[in-house]
Amino acid sequence: MPKHMKSRKSKIGSAPGTLVHVGDRLSENIKVTLIKYDKENFSKSLLDKIEDCFSSEGNVINWVDVDGLHEIEVIEKIGQEFNLHPLILEDILNTTQRPKIDFNENYIYIVLKMLYYDKKIKRIKSEQISFIILKNHVFSFQEFEGDVFDNLRKRLEQNKSNIRNKRTDYLAYSLIDAIVDSYFDILESIGDTIDDIEDTLMRNPSEKLLSNIYELKREMIFLRNSIWPLRDVLNGLIKSDYPLIEDKTTIFLRDIYDHTVQIMDIVETYRDILSGMLDTYLSSMSNKTNEVMKVLTVFSTIFIPLSFFTGIYGMNFEYMPELHFKYGYLIFWVITVISILIMIRYFRKKNWF
């Protein structure tokens, strides 16, 4: 099983709000991308300094995508500029967070899990992504470069795109929606893997197949733990009367909530299927063992009377009458063969083989 849990040793004993990166450093330098847009204009640029994204121009929406979390000073500067609580900054850097939502005076903080399915090794890879939603800014903090937002970026480039007429709450909805839609792709890939395992299970169950089933069960548990809290996040957004969330956006959030419920139903279904496959494997191996034991029992039973005959006539008593009989050896084999045929016929009649 892949190691989904990251070490938190560096956090032990630290004061609340201490900024320590918990996770893997997957690149040398962080990458900050700024996308600015409104109804008429769109621009995309890579920033050399994080301060370049702090300014706000009227109704222009600023999406700041930060790839890489190991440069703590960048997170500190963002926190100082937008008055983010130190505990929020700490959570951004701590990549072991459970999906959650926090409402603050001027912003909303959301943590989610962005998941990928590696078809080669058939494993789920996890990345924590955090969002800070403000009036004119949306910050997304990712552990490494690469995400599921390419289609969203293409939509933003189009002048007639509906998203260009919306505020930051709709951009946040679009980001969350892209993540949730990616879960369906993961489940589809896992479903194909389960179908392959099921076909192999019917033909040739093996220990390797059992290992694959156990690993998939662990993956489904991890997937469930990553997605289940998302319902609380969406429910909090839907029911909140926070000024940043417009009423028109709520109906879209309800749609994501419905998708999340559907995903959880699929996850639970897959878990039940894998549990059933495990029972099927154990039953198949038990049946194989029973078949082997049945064959061994039949052969043992056939040779029991033969052992009895040879045991008697293997004794060296001097006055055994059959020992000097001219046709004794022949008669012995006749009796042996007749005994074997009788037992075989009896076993066939009982459908034992």
Rank of each mutant, 00 (worst) to 15 (best):
T260F: 05
Y257L: 08
S307G: 15
S43C: 09
M220Q: 12
M315S: 03
V148A: 10
E28W: 01
H4R: 10
K294I: 01
H324G: 02
W352L: 15
V138N: 08
S161V: 09
S161N: 11
E246C: 08
N204T: 13
E188W: 02
F309V: 11
N29H: 09
F42L: 06
S14I: 02
D24K: 14
L330M: 15
S10R: 14
G58F: 02
P243M: 12
K120E: 15
L278Y: 08
K326R: 14
L112R: 03
L175E: 03
K9W: 08
N104R: 15
S43I: 00
G146S: 07
P2E: 12
T200M: 09
E57Y: 14
Y327D: 11
S126N: 07
L156C: 04
L156F: 04
K288T: 03
H21A: 02
N351S: 12
I197F: 13
L19C: 04
V64R: 03
L234D: 02
L19K: 10
Q142T: 02
T249H: 06
L230Y: 00
K350A: 12
K349H: 14
M315C: 04
V292E: 09
G23K: 06
V20D: 05
I273K: 07
I344S: 08
A15L: 15
F141G: 02
T250P: 02
Y117G: 07
D196Q: 13
N106R: 10
L323H: 08
S275R: 06
D247N: 14
M202C: 05
S10D: 13
R8M: 09
P2Y: 09
G146F: 07
R155V: 05
R224F: 10
L69Y: 07
I190G: 04
D147T: 05
S211T: 13
M202L: 15
L237S: 04
T96G: 06
Y109C: 07
T310D: 02
G13N: 10
F353A: 11
D65I: 01
I227F: 10
E207G: 00
V337L: 15
G58M: 04
S126R: 09
K11M: 13
L341E: 13
R164M: 09
F303T: 06
Y37I: 08
K166E: 14
H137T: 03
T249Q: 05
I256C: 15
N290Q: 09
T269C: 03
D147V: 00
R231Y: 06
N136S: 13
L152M: 12
K288Y: 08
V180K: 03
L209M: 11
L274E: 01
F103N: 07
I251R: 14
E207P: 00
L223Q: 04
Y313S: 06
Y329I: 02
Y170I: 01
I344K: 01
I124Y: 07
G146T: 11
E198I: 00
S286W: 07
V261M: 14
V267H: 03
K217I: 08
P229E: 11
D195I: 06
T200H: 09
L244D: 09
I30Q: 09
P229H: 05
A178K: 01
S45E: 15
E76P: 05
F222K: 00
V66H: 09
E145H: 06
N287G: 01
K44R: 11
G23I: 04
L175K: 00
I344V: 15
D52W: 05
F317P: 07
D196S: 14
G58Y: 06
Y281N: 00
D247I: 00
T269R: 14
